[in-house]
Simulated assay, not measured.
Amino acid sequence: MSHSIGSLKTNNYELRKSLGELKEEKERLTAEEYTQLKNKQIAIETAQTTQNKERNRLEKELTETKNLLHEIKQKLALVETDKDKIKEKLEKLESSQVKPAETETVAVKSTDVREREKDTEMSRESLIKETQEERKSSLVEDLLDKAIQLYRQGKFEEAIAKWEEVLTLNPGKLEAKFNIEIAQDRIKERQKQEDLKSTLIQRK
């Protein structure tokens, strides 16, 4: 009887031990599964964040491309308008030429025609030059406007590039030279602030 009770106690102890081990194993597996699920969730969130950034970048590039196409269309429209103006002026010039008198000799007529052709060619060149100057002036104003916008956005390097384009078209544009100097000073100030911030971070 005593032997049977001792055997039962031993069996009971072993059962409790096995039950405890099973419980620990269950908790360990649950923790591992939780960790795996958590890692998967983090990976999914990271992938979604990356996709959102890429989508935003593509949308921004698409918008910039659309704006660029719009600007190109506007410039093409201006070119077509300029061509029509030149054609109209040339037609007026040609129609305003005085016909030679019938009593003139062939030699005089030939000389007069050559003179008129020369005048017409000079007028054509003058008109083309005048139109080119107008287009250049318009382009300079556009570049100045874009440079100011970039400067206000804090994009000093890009603004300087636009002002340099202005100086290429019109070297005597003092406004562009003055603004370049101001933008360069702002770049230096920003660099100093960044250096100071970096120094403070390193000290911490």
Score class of each variant (00 low, 15 high):
residue 3 H to F: 04
residue 3 H to E: 10
residue 6 G to S: 13
residue 7 S to N: 14
residue 8 L to F: 09
residue 11 N to P: 01
residue 12 N to V: 14
residue 22 L to T: 07
residue 25 E to S: 15
residue 26 K to F: 05
residue 27 E to K: 10
residue 28 R to I: 05
residue 31 A to L: 14
residue 32 E to P: 00
residue 45 E to D: 14
residue 45 E to M: 11
residue 45 E to W: 02
residue 46 T to W: 01
residue 46 T to R: 15
residue 46 T to Q: 15
residue 51 Q to R: 15
residue 54 E to Q: 15
residue 58 L to Y: 07
residue 58 L to H: 03
residue 58 L to T: 09
residue 62 L to E: 11
residue 63 T to A: 10
residue 65 T to F: 08
residue 68 L to G: 03
residue 69 L to K: 11
residue 73 K to V: 01
residue 75 K to A: 13
residue 75 K to L: 08
residue 75 K to Y: 05
residue 76 L to G: 00
residue 76 L to S: 07
residue 77 A to Y: 11
residue 77 A to K: 13
residue 77 A to I: 00
residue 80 E to C: 00
residue 83 K to F: 08
residue 84 D to M: 05
residue 84 D to S: 09
residue 86 I to S: 00
residue 88 E to A: 03
residue 88 E to N: 02
residue 96 S to L: 02
residue 97 Q to D: 00
residue 97 Q to A: 05
residue 98 V to R: 05
residue 98 V to Q: 11
residue 99 K to N: 08
residue 99 K to S: 10
residue 99 K to M: 02
residue 101 A to Q: 11
residue 101 A to D: 15
residue 102 E to M: 05
residue 107 A to Y: 02
residue 108 V to Y: 05
residue 109 K to W: 05
residue 111 T to I: 09
residue 114 R to H: 01
residue 114 R to V: 09
residue 115 E to Q: 13
residue 116 R to S: 13
residue 117 E to Q: 10
residue 120 T to G: 02
residue 121 E to P: 00
residue 122 M to T: 10
residue 124 R to A: 08
residue 124 R to I: 04
residue 127 L to Y: 08
residue 128 I to S: 01
residue 131 T to D: 07
residue 131 T to P: 00
residue 132 Q to A: 06
residue 133 E to V: 05
residue 134 E to P: 00
residue 135 R to S: 12
residue 136 K to N: 08
residue 137 S to H: 09
residue 139 L to W: 05
residue 139 L to Q: 08
residue 140 V to D: 04
residue 141 E to N: 10
residue 144 L to A: 06
residue 145 D to E: 15
residue 146 K to L: 06
residue 147 A to I: 09
residue 148 I to Y: 04
residue 149 Q to E: 14
residue 151 Y to A: 14
residue 154 G to H: 06
residue 155 K to V: 04
residue 157 E to N: 06
residue 157 E to Q: 12
residue 157 E to F: 05
residue 158 E to F: 02
residue 160 I to F: 03
residue 162 K to R: 14
residue 163 W to I: 03
residue 166 V to S: 01
residue 172 G to A: 13
residue 175 E to T: 13
residue 175 E to M: 03
residue 178 F to K: 13
residue 181 E to K: 06
residue 181 E to T: 10
residue 183 A to S: 08
residue 187 I to F: 01
residue 189 E to Y: 04
residue 192 K to I: 12
residue 193 Q to N: 11
residue 194 E to M: 12
residue 197 K to Q: 10
